[in-house]
Design a binder for these strands. Structure first.
Length: 482
RNA sequence: GCGAAAGUAGCUCAUUUGGUAGAGCACGACCUUGCCAAGGUCGGGGUGGCCGGUUCGAGCCCGGUCUUUCGCUCCA
């Protein structure tokens, strides 16, 4: 179970993220918008770097995985086929005393069962019939009246103190075209996966893919969560990084194990402490899956899901076949047979990965100084591969030709990676500012540089310094970020 | 959605019983300096989350609302 910690790490991270331009509340001048956030200068760069690192690990390092970029708007039938429309249409009601939430139909059916037990089958049938009529018309007032008239009470609190009935539709809807008619209602996608499934044949044929192969995609998805909280962990607008891997039916066990292992390796390749991770196997499976596991990370608020690996069987492609009346089959030349492929899905939340990286990197470090006093530094131990700035170039003084030398280095390095140049303030202060945004390397150009062509390179994590040749700086940084 | 707490400068926070707002850090300019948050001078920045009420007078009291955090609940 999730361990909850009562420390204030999360508020400190939120505060730091805002102060240094990583994450801002959306529309903050209008008091913000609940559970929506914007990424600032360093945040957007860090997010892009995480996305690129994932994208390359999929599409560049695997010859049999290709990418797509599907639209957020999709044909409305997509969501009927995927099961999203039906899953979301249940009216719900809360008991104010017990705080328990019920599906209205389950609540009324439960009462009907009791009537049957009591021997009044006639009344039970009548109750169900009127409920179904009201459900079909979305008549919530009528449904509430049924609950009140029949004195249906909460099984926990035993009271009839109910809230109004509400429809919690987790999909955002809007209208396509200028006229708002029912037929034109479309949804903002609640997941990116369906964009891959509906393009299965397009991709397979155009890129001449042979099973097993994968399709990767990153993009925004939208869910109208009833409760969205914990900073950027659960947002109403969020970004997914998904890969659907198409395989021969019967081989799903092996491929599921393969991707479970591969995805954990990816996480650990960022140098994150393995003890912070764990697998959580699903016992109760979603309607489309025959096996599912979460990769969980120990956030400041406990172990939570970052990524899911699902064995989705042929559920999605089969459903799209049914609803579209188009065959979504693959001809396997090895066995000379047609079949609907099975699918192993890896799906990771980019924003969650971003928060994971921040939480894992953030440290308020106490430094024991030589004179016996202590000092506090806030440092982001970001993996060098994904840090927004790779190198800060700092002339020790702004005179004596040092800025000129520094700018030369800047011009050379900025073609290869993100650099930051600054000549303001004392050198120590500049180091600390770079620590706060996670820049892994700083080089200082000093008077000795003019004499022997060496610079001081200072490492963020150890704070150690060493002298290296000016013309080796770029090489050293490149060695750490590739 | 329920309960608790919070919201004052970019950040962290003061302003003890109601009398028209301060500090440290940060930010900008200049001077001295030069290898781990240096010193000095000057400067910019707030209709106290928002709306309303009580009062001669509200950052402070009352009501509402928005946002956030924490605990429940929910998470196809």
């Amino acid at each position: 179970m999730s361990k909850t910690t009562s420390d204030n790490t999360l508020p400190a991270i939120i505060s730091h993220a805002k102060e240094y331009g990583f994450v801002f509340p959306s529309s903050e001048i209008y008091d913000g918008l609940s559970a929506v956030y914007d990424y600032g200068p360093y945040g957007s760069q860090l997010k892009k770097n995480i996305r690129d690192y994932w994208w390359n690990s999929m599409t560049q390092l695997n010859e049999n995985i290709v990418g797509i970029d599907a639209a957020i708007f999709m044909h409305p039938t997509t969501w009927k086929a995927s099961g999203h429309v039906d899953s979301f249409s249940d009216p719900l009601i809360d008991n104010k005393d017990s705080k328990k939430r019920y599906r209205v139909d389950h609540l009324i059916e439960g009462h009907a069962d009791k009537l049957v037990e009591a021997g009044d089958k006639e009344a039970a049938d009548k109750l169900i019939a009127s409920m179904e009529a009201l459900l079909a018309n979305d008549d919530f007032t009528g449904l509430k009246k049924i609950i009140e008239d029949n004195k249906i009470f909460c099984s926990v609190s035993g009271t009839g103190n109910w809230t109004e009935i509400r429809q919690f539709n987790l999909m955002f809807s809007t209208e396509l075209g200028s006229v708002a008619e029912d037929a034109n209602t479309i949804y903002l996608r609640p997941e990116t996966a369906q964009g891959i499934f509906v393009n299965f044949l397009n991709v397979q044929k155009s890129a001449r893919m042979k099973i097993p192969f994968g399709i990767a995609q990153t993009g925004k998805a939208f869910r109208n969560e009833i409760v969205a909280r914990q900073f950027i962990f659960r947002m109403r607008e969020f970004e997914q990084m998904e890969m659907q891997f198409f395989i021969k039916p019967g081989t799903q066990k092996e491929w599921y194990a393969h991707w479970k292992e591969e995805r954990m390796k990816w996480h650990l390749s960022l140098g994150i402490d393995a003890a912070k991770y764990r697998f959580h196997d699903h016992i109760k499976l979603a309607h489309y899956a025959d096996a599912a596991v979460d990769i969980e990370y120990e956030f400041p608020f406990g172990f939570k899901e970052v990524e899911g690996i699902h064995s989705r069987t042929d559920f999605d492609l089969t459903r799209h076949q049914e609803f579209s009346k188009k065959k979504l089959q693959y001809f396997d030349t090895e066995i000379n047979q047609h079949y609907v492929p099975y699918v192993i899905e890896t799906s990771i939340g980019l924003d969650r990965m971003f928060l994971l990286i921040l939480a894992n990197s953030y440290e308020e470090e106490t430094i024991n100084k030589e004179d016996g006093t202590t000092d506090l530094r806030v440092v982001l131990h970001l993996p060098a591969k994904i840090a927004p700035n790779k190198l800060a170039i700092l002339p020790l003084t702004k005179k004596d030709g040092l800025p000129e030398l520094a700018k030369e280095l800047m011009e050379d390095c900025k073609k290869s990676f993100h650099c930051f140049y600054e000549e303001k303030d004392a050198i120590g202060k500049r180091y600390r500012r770079q620590d706060a945004i996670g820049t892994p390397f700083c080089v200082t150009i000093d008077h000795q540089t003019k004499e022997d062509g060496t610079v001081t390179i200072r490492y963020r994590d150890s704070m150690l310094q060493e002298r290296i040749a000016l013309n080796k700086v770029k090489e050293l940084v490149l060695a750490h970020i590739n």
